[in-house]
Amino acid sequence: MSSLIGSPPETGATTPTAVPARQGLSAGRARTARRGLRVLAAVVVLGVAWALIAPNYPSFVFPTPADVWASFTRAVERGVWVEQVIATLGHLGSAFAIVLVAGLPLGILIGRSIIAEDLSRVVLVFFQTVPTVVLIALALAIYGISDESVIGVTVAGSITYFLLNVIQGTRAIDRDLVDMARAYHANETTIMRTVVVPSVIPYFLAGARITLGVAWQITLFSEYLMGSAGIGFNVNTAISLLDTSTVFMWGLSVVALTLLVEYGLFRPVERRLTRHMRRT
């Protein structure tokens, strides 16, 4: 998923942001500020380039920033923007929650039990390789055009990414720690709570992040093809009316929302859960 400032998201879970240990707090902050300014400069340059190039094309091919902005304010004024964003976040959030809540115990089970692994292998391979369009076709056949279809396809299309991470994390659990807990007479529930789950958390976070990125794509795609609401559905409507500005507007909205979820939700949660690893 996108991350504009700082380390790439995969490593973000385990590596503290690369500020040299001896560097003073203010020096570190100044550096962050400088990097932030560079990012901002790039945004401005791209925006200006867009504003200069777009007028050479018809608006339905390449709308200007002003067209897109107008489309945005119109959508906001009519309440469409908030309504559709909520619909999409509802789809995405439900699917993501289902994946996390079902995937964590399932992944731990598969990671710990050879029987569960063998039994689930076929299903895992299926969900990993089956094309999303086939899932969409199946959902259309079963549920028709509905929220359930969108959520179901998103869950089915993204859960393997999460499961595989949790399974890997469960396999990577330090046997020595489990033995330690046993030697001190911890029961299985306690071992699960105090050793297994905390060990899996970095993998849980990595899996959640990949899953969220994939889930965004699938949700929008599903809304486009079989939704009755949501950003994907609106992109479909807009493009059939050759309203390219609105398509651009939704595209940029998704970028903004993704960043918001990343920095407003994901990073703080991650920072909290990996507290013990990031003290320097």
Binding site: D176, L177, D179, M180, Y184, V195, P198, I201, H276
Partner: peptide, 16 residues
């Protein structure tokens, strides 16, 4: 009540 101090420390990394 038995206690086992292992050859390696085996502390839980997420606990202080």
């Amino acid at each position: 009540r038995s206690a086992y101090v292992f050859q390696n420390p085996r502390l839980l990394p997420w606990r202080d």
